[in-house]
Design a protein around this nucleic acid. Structure first.
Lengths: 228, 228
DNA sequence: GCTTATGTTTACATAAATGTCAATATCAAC
DNA sequence: GTTGATATTGACATTTATGTAAACATAAGC
């Protein structure tokens, strides 16, 4: 309550008043950054872009907001780091999903892949983060979803080509594969944003949503079967 | 380069002396609201959600920012009005596109419809506005894109049913039609947000983008032909 | 011309968020 | 134990946005 301290001369502490004995938790820089990013991610997923406020995130982690600035330089730095981390996680999830099922070439497989892609983008609001990034015009060179789609298209085309060779069928069209990847990316992206809304209005429960994704997978699978 | 400052027009001074007689433009409330919404829409499309700042929009229109508050109560009111207007425009565009081509049942027609839907969502950043709305958790009862998709699905199903009856084919599956609408909505939505990015990274020019949309339209058309 | 309704403005108030700074506590190394 | 590096903090500064109030100006009706 005593607010009438000396204004200037941050000289030594006024002897009478003493700092209280506070137990301060001190983490490694890496650990602190991880916790902060986790909290930011959760806020973003739950409350949207405007949920990323230093004070709130600091409270979630149990630190003071200047600590965040210490680790990330600025709010923008925090956002950039979050985008980078999320992008890398997304890339890993999708590519591993693609590669793990390599070789088995039935429509159940296609179903799994599509399901995984959709899931990867809905989880934790990944697509929301990325779309917010695009909406606000942020670009991080290597972490954008850009190269990712090309990687996916490449991997997919390799698989299709191999499959065609094994089956004695003609090689698939390169652009056709690219379009499959682009459509899947766009659909999964859009689904992550308005999917829940659409499903609600259509009266679909989670089983219905699963049917939708399976339907989409079959659509692509049939197409591949036709054009391969 | 000095910043371009507006010529300030002080209307009153304490001693009663006035600088000069300023000509004030006085619009009808309706006109003023329209101009403000236009400016807000443009800012949003160009700079993203954070581009909606009363001061900036006011400057664009050539008014002072309290005038905006006078017409829309609050910033939130402005956003809500913009969302409502945009939703209605989107609804009209898509439904009219659907209905205008009614009757002609070839894949060129499907191409046109898909193209129109994608266009409607990219134009003026409509999808960006709506996705921002969803991202920030805003909901306006009647203006959400929700009922819209059901309307579209209904209209589409009517057309498919009629077409099937004329051709003597079995009636199409209701859920199949719904899924077509949902996929189209999701894909167009996602495309509006990351489409440019994807196309860039894939090295597609505008002709390539057109090919992609045509490819998608054909995918749906072939599917309908198969399942009808 | 006078009055009235309301669109419009200036100046100010307020709030909230980011960012700065010096001081302090904690861990690790010596 | 002492020292050094740095993670952490409280208090403060700054910026910038929205929102308020009272006065003014303009178009329309009498």
């Amino acid at each position: 309550m005593s607010s009438d301290e000396m204004i200037v001369a941050p000289a030594l502490f006024p002897n009478g008043e003493r700092k209280r004995e506070v137990k301060r938790v001190r983490r490694s820089a890496e650990e602190a950054r991880r916790l902060i990013l986790d909290a930011a991610e959760e806020r973003l997923a739950a409350q949207g872009p405007e949920g990323i406020r230093l004070q709130d995130i600091a409270r979630d982690v149990g630190i003071s907001h200047p600590a965040i600035l210490h680790h990330f330089e600025s709010r923008e730095g925090l956002v950039a780091a979050l985008i980078a981390r999320t992008s890398i996680q997304l890339r890993d999830k999708i590519l591993s999903a693609l590669k793990s099922n390599h070789g088995t070439d039935d429509h159940v497989n296609a179903n799994d892949i599509i399901s995984n892609v959709f899931q990867a983008l809905s989880d934790k609001g990944t697509a929301r983060l990325l779309s917010w990034m695009l909406l606000t015009g942020r670009r991080t060179e290597h972490s954008t979803s850009g190269p990712l789609v090309m990687e996916i298209a490449d991997e997919l085309h390799t698989q299709r080509t191999e499959g065609a060779a094994l089956g004695g069928r003609p090689a698939p069209d390169r652009e056709d594969t690219l379009f499959i990847a682009m459509l899947t990316a766009s659909a999964a992206f859009g689904d992550a944003i308005i999917g829940r809304e659409l499903a609600n209005d259509a009266g679909l429960d989670s089983a219905g949503i699963a049917r939708f994704r399976a339907w989409f997978a079959k659509l692509l699978y049939d197409h591949v079967g036709d054009t391969l």
